[in-house]
Structures are given as C-alpha cells and as structure tokens.
Design a protein around this nucleic acid. Structure first.
Lengths: 218, 218
DNA sequence: GCAAAAGTGTTATCCCTACACCCATGA
DNA sequence: TCATGGGTGTAGGGATAACACTTTTGC
C-alpha cells in the first residue's frame, strides 16, 4: 500500500437539510461549539473517518449533532477552494436531504452548541462557504421538483392538497395555480386519497398520501 | 490550525472525457504505467495537491497525462467506498467534460503508459470502479442533452446538421427524427448559418455554428 | 348568515410526434 | 442518369397556462 509522498487532506461532509413547517421552508443549522467560527451558525457536518463512505459519515454526523435520522441523502458537490477552512487542506462534500416536519427535534449534540431550524429566506450569516452550498442546494432541489417525488419527503405521511401546493411553492419560489396544480397531481396520479379529512376552522380538507407503488422515482 | 487527530485521506480526480469522431462517442482512457492495476485501462486522473482546487487538479492531470486542454469541466460525484483503491483511503472526485474532435492528440505523459480514445460502446475492462463512473457520466450527459448546449462542445466550430444529429443520437442512445430535430433546432434558434457548405460525394451540406450570443446556458 | 378555505372545468395555445418526397451534386 | 445524402411541412394529440365560481364548515 503506497500512498507515500501523497499530500493528504481532511475530508468533511456538510449537510443541507430542509424541512417544511406548513408555511416556510426551513434549514437545519448548528451553532458551532469550537473554533473556527465558534459561536457562528453553520451547516451540520463533520469529518470523514477511515473505513466509512461519505454518505455514512453524513448520516453519522447528523445523528450525533442533531439526532435527526433520514432516509434519502443526495450528494450535492465537493467544495475544495484552498483556504475555505482556516484549518487548511479540508475538502468538503455537501449532501442534500429533506425531512418530514420540523418536529424532528434538533437537539444539540457533541460538536454543536445548539441546533435550530431557520427559515431559508431569513438565514443568519453562515460560517465557511456554507451560504454558497445552501444556494446550490436550493437550485438543485427546485430543478428536481416536478421530475421526482422528492418534494413529498417534506410533507407528513398524510397531507392536504393545499399543504402540498404550499410546499411546492416554497421550493420553486413561485406561485402556483391551484387548479393546474391539482390536475397535474391527478395526471401524475402519484397520490391516493386516505378517506380522512383534516378539520379546521372551515370546510374540511381531504387527506392524501403518496402512492407507494410507484415510489421508486429517480 | 488544528487538524490534529483528524484521519487523513488522499484525494484524487478521475476524468470522463468524451469526444465524437463523427460516428461514435469515444472516451479518453490511459493505460496505467504503475501499480495498482498496472497495464490496465483507466480514466485519466491523479492526486490533489495542497493549494489547488479539485478542478485545477483535474485540468493539470489531464494536461500532464494526455496533453488535452479543455474549457468546461463539470463535477460529477465523489466516490468513497472503502477499498475502492487498494492503496487505501483514497476518495476520488469524478469530472465530466466534452471535447471537440478526437484529434486532440492523446499522447502519453508521465503517469500513463499510453492514452487512447475508445468507443464508449466497446470499452475494455476498467480499473478501480471506473466503469461505474463512466456509466454515471453517460447518464448525466444524456440528461442534460436537450436542456443545455453542452452537446455542441462535441462538435467542431462549424458542422452540418447531420453531424449534430448523429452526435445527439449517440449521446441519447436513441434514434432521432431528422425533421423533428431540425425544427427543434430552429425553434431554439441556437445556431447560425455560416454561409459555407461542406462538399462531399453528394449534395453539399450547409455549415452552422453555435450562436455565441446565448451561449451562457446552464 | 357570514367569513374563510376547499373544491372543481374549459378553452386556447404551444409543443411533440409521426410521417414521405423532392433536391443538388459527383461519378 | 443514377445513387446518395441534404433538405423540407403538416396534421393530430397531449400538455400547459390562464381564468371564477360554488361548496362546506365553524362561529
């Protein structure tokens, strides 16, 4: 095994985790408990260890820092600008995931002093190059909106069509016509009625769930 | 600067470089001059050095190994399965690029014993997990075919519509209707007539070039 | 009965697809 | 004149986008 003479790097993962609170898209952030950028907000993440894949690392770090477990995790991009981490020679691979409801309690773990779900349209200043990473993630997410079922991962198991529409509007950052959205859903026939309804102040809204038969998606 | 205690890795880039010879899509391969996998075919690439970005590394390695220079280079994905490199603890970031004509001479440089353009549909067995990387690259390329101008990077500065169609067919791995392809090009109006024609055995074919005005694309 | 959100169809336009024949040239 | 690849248009079906009113409930 000769890696002799190779220049070595620390490898990190950074996670862009979005959730939808019924009204706004939110992003999971941690307040850094150690230098560099101690006390500032950053994406959750951490260092890769020997013998694990980047994806395993991402899941492990997220669990340790925030207690959040997730199903699907997509690789976004590697970030390697020299100097992006003041500790030097750290290359980071960013991952993107969506979670259902922000009630996955963001409890601070080891490395992170504090964790919180912040509205993506009102983010604090972020450490490192994390603002760039977040913007790339939002674009990636919006690009996949209508071609995968990814966005439904933002919704609870059963949801109303109005909730789904709002989630799509927040991801695409554009208003959507109610009737067109519903006929598109019908044409795609990715949803099943549950027979139940959500009762509120006004007329009850039917609850739907994703039709599992065709979930494979991309 | 404390990276103390961090487990370190060698970082490599692997390049998937496609060219179009007028008939088939071809992939740039090098025959490895050193272990591991000495003598086997592999993607060009090499190790990241301190102070450079991954993209800079990819360009440098390609230049050194094959003399090929390229404009645009897209990051594909990071590959981190433990054991993917027998030297251990090597994470690789794959890049994708397209070059005009395969007459960019693939001359072997330092690390590579030999370089060659091989038809993508008749590739030899590849070292490491490079076959997986190539397949991901082909899918990525096909996905972007009709939404970016990327595929025109495969063509010479001026080209006939038949040449463009063949390139699109090879990338998408599907036959394309001639009239539909041409009316799509017209609708997109990304091409400009040069006024010249390519003379051959039969009726001369008009030569076109990409309209620079709207090249930004994605 | 009133306020508020849920639910529902139609029309015009554009895009995609399928499909067949004449044209210009070199040999 | 013939063989070969270059070049051209249309019609039908499906998707998209714009648009407003009725229904059901809680208060």
């Amino acid at each position: 095994m000769d890696l002799a003479g190779r220049q070595l790097f620390a490898l990190a993962t950074d996670l862009v985790i979005f959730a939808f609170d019924g009204d706004a898209l939110r992003l999971l952030l941690v307040r850094r408990g150690k230098p560099p950028f101690r006390g500032e907000w950053a994406l959750p993440g951490g260092f890769l260890e020997h013998g694990e894949t980047l994806e395993e690392c991402a899941r492990r770090e997220l669990r340790e820092e925030t207690g959040v477990e997730l199903r699907r995790l997509d690789q976004l991009s590697a970030f390697s600008t020299p100097g992006r981490d003041p500790r030097g020679n750290v290359v980071s691979i960013a991952y993107l995931a969506l979670v259902r409801a922000s009630n996955v309690l963001a409890t601070a773990g080891s490395d992170a002093a504090e964790a919180a779900w912040r509205e993506v349209d009102a983010l604090p200043k972020l450490a490192f190059d994390h603002a760039d990473i977040v913007e790339m993630a939002r674009r990636r997410l919006a690009d996949a909106l209508y071609t995968t079922t990814a966005a439904f991962d933002l919704l609870p198991d059963s949801f109303t069509l109005a909730e789904a529409q709002t989630a799509f509007e927040r991801v695409s950052r554009a208003p959507i016509d109610k009737r067109n959205f519903r006929s598109w859903l019908h044409k795609e026939s990715r949803l099943r009625e549950t027979g139940l309804a959500r009762r509120g102040q006004h007329r009850p809204a039917k609850l739907y769930r994703l039709d599992q038969d065709q979930e494979p998606a991309q």
